[in-house]
Simulated assay, not measured.
Amino acid sequence: MNSIVFVLVGTQHPGNIGSAARALLVMGLARLRLVRPHRFPDEHADAMASGAVDLLRRAEVYDSLDAAVEDCAWVVGTSARVRYLGDEPLLPEAAARSLLDAAGKGATVALVFGCERTGLTNEEADRCHRLTMVPANPEYSSLNLAAAVQIYAWELRRAAITPQPVAARSDETFMKGRFRAPTMEQMEQFFEHLERTLIGTGFIDPTNPRLLTRRLRTLFNRARPDLNELNILRGILTSVEKPKHRTPRTKGPARTPPSASSASVRRPPPPDAAGAPETADGPE
């Protein structure tokens, strides 16, 4: 639970920040990050935080979502609507399980909430590995920001108190950590490398990329490659950018059987040669 970060982007009302802090503390969560809050610190935030003012004081403030999640290996964004692109949004329970699974491998993970009026923009949603949505009343799905935070905080606590099997790769020391989940910064470096390579091969038109890069993001976010696999993928991209001409490996010089006329050949004697008698001219 200490590896889970709640990120609020562009929060307009400071009271929602305070209420969110209170919701986190009640469920045993303690990490809050704010991206471009309209007013913070603020007395309304302190008032709504109630006994969670200390948590509020520890909240980290960032200028961009990229900076807020760059150290995170798994990022889930909340959405109030189904997006045209990408996978079907996770239900809150599944989102909580995915966050805890990633956090159990020693990684920092994040759950991101957009501002009250517009939610996450498409660009902000692109920075998330998956999206999640509360299946609210379709005729009135407007959910208060702090209430949404409370729902997910509870789902995380409920999932955390349920015993789960531990895989060998969840140990950070396993194979020197080469199978750990890559951070968001490492994934962004991979996406930049991928786009640069595809532009270089002509597969992507840089003046009209359309939706291809976003679909590729969805594909690799769904696959969730570990750090070792990500390095393999980047190695493949590098080999496309700078091909290596390797010499085919041989098995050594071919061996040819000696000829029958070779002087080095010693023919075995006939079976009865050892007991053959000598002639007048000497032994044959």
Rank of each mutant, 00 (worst) to 15 (best):
residue 276 A to Q: 13
residue 86 G to W: 00
residue 66 D to E: 11
residue 14 P to M: 11
residue 277 P to W: 08
residue 262 S to R: 09
residue 224 R to L: 04
residue 161 I to W: 14
residue 89 P to D: 09
residue 167 A to Q: 14
residue 220 F to C: 09
residue 268 P to Y: 04
residue 152 Y to T: 05
residue 275 G to F: 09
residue 234 R to Q: 15
residue 227 L to Y: 10
residue 266 R to E: 11
residue 84 Y to T: 12
residue 121 T to I: 03
residue 191 F to D: 02
residue 109 V to A: 00
residue 221 N to C: 13
residue 125 A to G: 03
residue 89 P to K: 01
residue 256 T to R: 12
residue 248 P to F: 06
residue 179 F to W: 10
residue 211 L to N: 14
residue 124 E to W: 03
residue 24 L to E: 02
residue 223 A to R: 06
residue 52 A to I: 03
residue 43 E to W: 05
residue 258 P to Q: 03
residue 245 H to W: 08
residue 97 R to K: 14
residue 276 A to M: 08
residue 59 A to Q: 05
residue 1 M to R: 09
residue 281 D to W: 06
residue 262 S to G: 10
residue 231 N to P: 02
residue 82 V to P: 01
residue 30 A to M: 07
residue 23 A to L: 04
residue 112 V to N: 00
residue 267 R to V: 04
residue 162 T to P: 03
residue 271 P to D: 10
residue 156 L to N: 00
residue 10 G to S: 06
residue 136 A to G: 12
residue 154 W to P: 00
residue 195 E to T: 12
residue 8 L to R: 02
residue 35 V to Q: 00
residue 27 M to K: 08
residue 214 R to W: 04
residue 194 L to F: 02
residue 132 T to V: 06
residue 115 C to S: 13
residue 117 R to W: 06
residue 150 Q to I: 02
residue 126 D to L: 09
residue 221 N to W: 08
residue 166 V to Y: 12
residue 260 A to K: 06
residue 28 G to M: 04
residue 8 L to P: 03
residue 194 L to Y: 00
residue 219 L to W: 03
residue 94 A to G: 07
residue 203 F to W: 09
residue 177 G to V: 09
residue 181 A to H: 14
residue 100 L to T: 01
residue 248 P to A: 12
residue 206 P to N: 12
residue 241 E to M: 11
residue 68 A to T: 02
residue 77 G to I: 00
residue 158 R to E: 08
residue 18 G to L: 06
residue 266 R to T: 08
residue 45 A to E: 00
residue 123 E to S: 08
residue 63 D to P: 05
residue 81 R to Y: 07
residue 257 P to H: 07
residue 72 C to N: 07
